[in-house]
Design a protein around this nucleic acid. Structure first.
Lengths: 201, 201
DNA sequence: ATAATATGAAACGACACCGTTGCGTATCGA
DNA sequence: TCGATACGCAACGGTGTCGTTTCATATTAT
């Protein structure tokens, strides 16, 4: 017994996989998806070409395209807006402002599209996306609302899931079907209108 | 001058185009789109095969796929819920119920997906869809709201576009990201919650 | 009957990807 | 140094779709 490092992963000898290549592949995949391709139009060849990588290198790591996409989405930092603090209104406005600003980034838009429109065909991708990008935000949002219910800023009998759907859905509707350009104070507008019904009576 | 039928379209002699084939083509295209294909995955070959038609017949009528898709979407009867009548609340509930029930039809879902996710890549398709499926409904909705503002059921200073975004966006959010199955009275729930903020104070 | 056009079927060459393999080179541990 | 593994690259045969063309047949007006 001359070797091993006692911890689980025994280095398998030989040249280690390039961390750089892996990053480049994922980045390239996100890049292409961000240009509007659906998952099925996303070709391994195109990813390899853009990443400056051999197809071999991709196939060695992922056995199919879905797995790659899942990992790619997983690598998206869910740049959850950092914490906030003061009034419920201000928190909601800040939250929706993040959502709105993200929706103007082409890449974010397209990835939202994928998550939304391909959930039927690629359920694993959609599921993963939901867990990474949607769920943490929903939790953040519900925390704000519940805090408001506790301290009297909001009605005590507010239906939290419904309230979340109203806030998120309204912003999504506006950003998706934007005929015109969005007003800069869209988040304020939405929150102020919606909160009318959420406040204690 | 021995012929013509004085009305604009002079029959061009020879075998006329088959109306039946045209219907079959469009139906086949919608069918495939309804199974979840995006516009770019929709192949002419597949349409021809499903329609029981030669590719020739398709290419003779449409020079490209987008034109075909545009016509296909145009053929969708916008089954605008027939008129309604009584209170604003009941009208809104009825309207949202139609939206909800449509969202459960696979075909409608997929076509919504296309309209939403491919608006960047196929602007003409999205534009046409908007005109056919979205606009008439928006007008119907805004009519209901304005009636309510006029007769005092709603606040006189209600922001109508905002109110429409809240109603439609909330329903869309719920039908899109449905973790659970949708409650049967979802439309009522949404309307009752949202109207709290829309009523005169 | 005849001319004109449409139809479905089949085949064409071209291209883009597929997933795999072989090659020479690079980078690690022993 | 040497064996092992990963790398990028290029090529393989296979498949699916493209848009076009050819063909025999069908349907219409004159």
């Amino acid at each position: 017994m001359t070797m091993q490092q006692t911890d689980g992963a025994v280095r398998p000898a030989g040249r280690p996989r390039s961390e750089k290549a892996e990053k480049a592949i994922i980045e390239a995949a996100l890049d292409i998806l961000g240009e509007g391709s659906g998952v099925s139009e996303l070709s391994i060849e195109a990813i390899a070409a853009r990443a400056g990588v051999g197809k071999t290198t991709i196939y060695r790591r992922w056995s199919n395209k879905e797995d790659l996409v899942v990992d790619a989405l997983a690598s998206l930092k869910p740049p959850i807006a950092p914490l906030k603090g003061e009034s419920v209104r201000d928190d909601l406005v800040a939250y929706l402002q993040v959502v709105q600003s993200e929706s103007s980034h082409v890449r974010t838009r397209c990835i939202m599209n994928i998550a939304m429109s391909q959930s039927d065909r690629h359920p694993r991708v959609a599921e993963r996306f939901h867990e990474i990008a949607i769920k943490p935000r929903q939790e953040m949002l519900s925390a704000v609302l519940e805090r408001g219910m506790a301290n009297g800023e909001l009605r005590a009998d507010l239906d939290v899931p419904m309230a979340m759907a109203i806030l998120s859905g309204t912003m999504m509707w506006r950003t998706k079907w934007a005929d015109d350009t969005l007003p800069a104070d869209l988040a304020e507008q939405i929150v102020d209108e919606v909160l009318r019904g959420f406040r204690p009576r």
